[in-house]
Design a protein around this nucleic acid. Structure first.
Lengths: 205, 205
DNA sequence: AAATAAAATGAACACTGTTCATTTTATCAA
DNA sequence: TTGATAAAATGAACAGTGTTCATTTTATTT
């Protein structure tokens, strides 16, 4: 049946248009300044149509959050070429931080806002596959670092978590406007300098 | 004049009652589930009255954020007794992290939510004194660590920022439900283990 | 061309933060 | 005590939000 296939494709396409409109408006005027009516208006459909394709606003937030993880995952995959695990670890951190600074709204959606997580819960889906997948990349890299003699005396899981926390903390403080309140240098500069201090420390491990 | 003094005191008192009602409701049912009408109801006044004492909701959020910093500041002051700066630094981190885990809503208000910062901006008050004061405690401690031979080859400001980021990152990931999505241990346990890894690392510095 | 299924609609609902003309209460002077 | 004045409290009204769902429009099949 060619008709139902075409219909499925059209549905997928309109859903994707809704998502891209949402992303555009989020970046343009912020997530909580973007309403369902705005999104509907952007694609020239009615409010009701948005609810045909998405359960609720959190559904949209979660879908966009997943898209963000695909992008970040793609940028991280490039670094699989880096043979030395320690070099790869440092590069991963830099990539992660750059992603956060360049896509603050997306980063918020992926790692701070409740919306996407509330959606998972409402679907009785307890697994956060996107987060787990990304953390796996970090953990396996740290594991290889340990296998090549680094981080001796450390525990893999908590250490990986501490490293994640460090870069996430930088991104998060920057994103929530807490950096500029404390230091009057350009926030991006102080952030990158802080990352350099982090690199100095783990370079000795 | 005794009358105007008494009036000023009464005003101060009612304002404080509004704040405490807000805090109670925030903890009970979450910040964005708490409405001005809820708060007014809690103290048995009308909505309008709340707006006599607070400019808007962000004003309340900011006031509560300041109260949180007073509490955290108090808990940190206790550690001034610890003579060795390195020991003090580690204790500061633990106190900071414990505060975040025990007062998640307050921590959110202090270090994540836009509300309090938006209020400052709306008041044309560019300085974030609460954050600066707290960061000063960390920086001066790190400075003393460096003066006693630790962290050689590091820069004070970015290093302090990196340390802040590490503990904030732990608190933030926990607070936004991202820890339990990735690791099925008790989130508090993995968090404390991660902090121990952090301690191991800076103990070598 | 009629019957059926699928998709899109937008008015309506219950809620939000916020305003401000009006009412109530307290203070002070005659 | 009374009337004038100032201060404080009020809540209806406004413009906005996310969400629902009976109704209408469009497309497909018979």
């Amino acid at each position: 049946m060619g008709v139902s296939e075409r219909k499925a494709k059209e549905k997928e396409e309109l859903k994707s248009r809704i998502l891209q409109a949402a992303k555009k408006l989020f970046v343009e005027k912020g997530i909580d300044q973007t309403t369902i009516r705005n999104i509907a208006n952007e694609i020239e459909y009615s409010v009701g149509t948005v609810y045909v394709y998405y359960k609720d606003k959190n559904d949209i937030l979660h879908d966009l959050h997943s898209q963000g993880f695909k992008q970040l995952g793609g940028e991280m995959k490039v670094l699989f070429n880096v043979a030395d695990p320690m070099e790869r670890l440092k590069a991963l951190g830099k990539t992660y931080l750059s992603f956060a600074l360049e896509n603050p709204d997306m980063y918020d959606l992926m790692f701070t806002l409740k919306g996407p997580m509330d959606f998972l819960e409402s679907m009785h889906q307890e697994e956060w596959n996107e987060g787990k997948g990304t953390f796996d990349v970090l953990r396996s890299t740290v594991n290889q670092c340990m296998e090549t003699g680094h981080f001796s005396g450390h525990q893999l899981e908590p250490l990986s978590f501490a490293i994640w926390s460090t870069v996430h903390g930088m991104a998060s403080l920057h994103n929530s406007q807490r950096v500029k309140g404390v230091n009057f240098e350009d926030p991006n500069t102080i952030l990158m300098k802080a990352y350099e201090e982090f690199v100095k420390i783990i370079d000795r491990e």
